[in-house]
Write a protein that binds this DNA or RNA. Structure first.
Lengths: 154, 154
DNA sequence: TCTGAAAGTTTTCATCC
DNA sequence: GGATGAAAACTTTCAGA
């Protein structure tokens, strides 16, 4: 699915992950291609599923973020499925990762403030199916937030 | 800075955080406003800094993600500043959070695979200034990845 | 002050080479 | 990969509520 990418593709994907608001002409200038050629490549990224969508990034300091480490009871596939479904139902779950190690999931909660966070933590995590325990780290400073992914080694 | 937001603003911001690829006309239909009115509001979000930018989201399964918990030695402001500067220099640091609790930072690393990860972990984390220790949780499944932030309580 | 509509400009899209 | 014309989107302006 992820077609072979050349240097220009890596450059374009870097640029698009930084700021997708640029025009095809601007992108063309930056990577040394015509707007048409850029358009073809960008369309290819979308069609292949490499680029999923474009989103607006809201200032994270407008929110209270918390990173929670979750451990489940039994680790059975059914338990995992139920837990995921339950947690994903909450829009405040900004990120959900199944991870290796002592914990099973890392959950990033984004809320409007502490009252909101307490409600969400109680309703979503504390009463989640299969939950053994969880701990919460509040984000004091979101130094960097992004979804940027390298398309090749540095 | 964050102007008072009405119901339509919340709705618009939800939509834009989900998918900013829609046209002003489409957004207008969804929130019940004319394209011009939508454009004015969107421009206001940008000007106020509430919306930072628009980015292309690359399929996270194209990468190896790891969540690292970092503890520093002394906790002095200077140590924090040096650590941040050092870590932020690496483009593979997708997210960096200063957090409360036993650990000082949560670092999300995005790499192209295990060889790349090892190099980055060695170069960026293991030799970071002021580092006492860190642990790594590899992401087995990025169930949900987003930067979505609620602009009001649910 | 905010809205909606229309004119003018830019960008994107599709087809050509 | 580049270039062109058509379609679509965006930006600006203006008048009304």
């Amino acid at each position: 699915m992820p077609a072979n990418l050349d240097e220009i593709d890596h450059h374009l994907l870097d640029l698009l992950q930084q700021d997708s608001g640029r025009t095809l002409a601007e992108l063309g200038d930056l990577v040394g291609l015509s707007p048409s050629a850029v358009q073809r490549r960008v369309e290819r990224y979308r069609a292949s599923g490499l680029v999923r969508r474009e989103v607006a990034v809201v200032d994270p300091s407008a929110a209270l973020l918390a990173v929670c480490l979750v451990t489940l009871d039994h680790e059975s596939p059914e338990e995992h499925a139920r837990f995921r479904e339950w947690v994903l139902a909450a829009p405040e779950v900004q990120q959900l990762y199944n991870v290796s190690g002592d914990h099973d999931y890392v959950v990033v909660l984004a809320t409007t403030g502490m009252p909101h966070h307490r409600r969400v933590a109680d309703r979503v995590l504390k009463s989640a199916p299969g939950l053994r325990r969880y701990s919460t780290m509040f984000v004091l400073d979101p130094v960097r937030t992004s979804l940027t992914v390298p398309t090749r080694d540095a």
